[in-house]
């Protein structure tokens, strides 16, 4: 592989754009196909199919074998609330290859000291979210317990294609949240996308245990096609 090609590939990943590296496995010949250039590629159909599945694999054309290495954007976790649970969640999420961002307008919470390894934005979610963009490779979790902060984030998440939305709070808290979201115009089907109470039911007690349950639910949603008991 040429270094320039590897460098292009890493740049597209960093910019959260999909792409495919095509390798002729017999000759070693390679080309890097950006998402925007797929239509004009000789293997367009195969490239689109693999990209849709998010899976790398071999294809054949005219008796030649090509390996398609599919690069989808790194899966991202946007956590609303620079709270104790988020402090436990951020390093765990990074370990499972999630690209983590913390948002909380309360400047006392949203400090780099509390979150040394991930970007922290001390701003309102409705100001930050449009800028960072919530795509279908994004999970959004609302963890502040404060509707003033959580609701604008949930609104943005419900209007997006993000693959996971979770909100912290008891069933009672969630029932009040559902009423507010209905009043603001979302349908019951929309609101059903929200996982609440957030996380798998593992009887979590401590902030770190709750973080485990949230992360497990995000992975379970991300990998739902592979689950034996979905």
């Amino acid at each position: 592989m040429r270094l320039s090609l590897l460098s292009d590939l890493n740049a597209e990943r960093a910019a959260r754009r999909a792409a495919v590296l095509v390798t002729d496995v017999a000759s070693g010949e390679q080309r890097f196909v950006r998402d925007s250039a797929i239509e004009s590629d000789p293997l367009a159909g195969d490239l689109q199919e693999k990209l849709r599945q998010g899976k790398s694999g071999l294809v054949e054309q005219n008796g030649r074998q090509f390996f398609l290495s599919v690069q989808i954007p790194p899966v991202r976790l946007v956590a609303i609330g620079a709270v104790h649970i988020s402090q436990a969640l951020a390093p765990m999420a990074r370990n499972v290859d999630l690209d983590v961002t913390i948002i909380d307008p309360r400047t006392a919470f949203a400090t780099p000291e509390r979150f040394p390894d991930v970007p922290v934005r001390a701003e309102w979610p409705d100001a930050v979210l449009p800028e960072i963009g919530i795509d279908r490779y994004t999970a959004v979790v609302a963890l502040t317990h404060d509707p003033k902060i959580d609701d604008p984030a949930l609104t943005a998440a419900l209007q997006s294609e993000c693959f996971y939305i979770g909100a912290l709070g008891s069933r009672k808290t969630h029932e009040r949240r559902v009423q507010r979201l209905l009043a603001s115009g979302f349908s019951g089907t929309d609101i059903a996308r929200i996982h609440a109470p957030i996380g798998l039911d593992i009887g979590a007690v401590s902030p770190a245990e709750i973080a485990v349950s949230i992360l497990a639910e995000i992975v379970a949603t991300l990998r739902s096609e592979r689950r034996r008991s979905a």
Partner: peptide, 16 residues
């Protein structure tokens, strides 16, 4: 820290 696919290909570029 575990290495991820993102880290791995970035590391390949950095090492080269």
């Amino acid at each position: 820290m575990l290495s991820t696919d993102t880290d791995i290909l970035k590391t390949a570029e950095d090492w080269r």
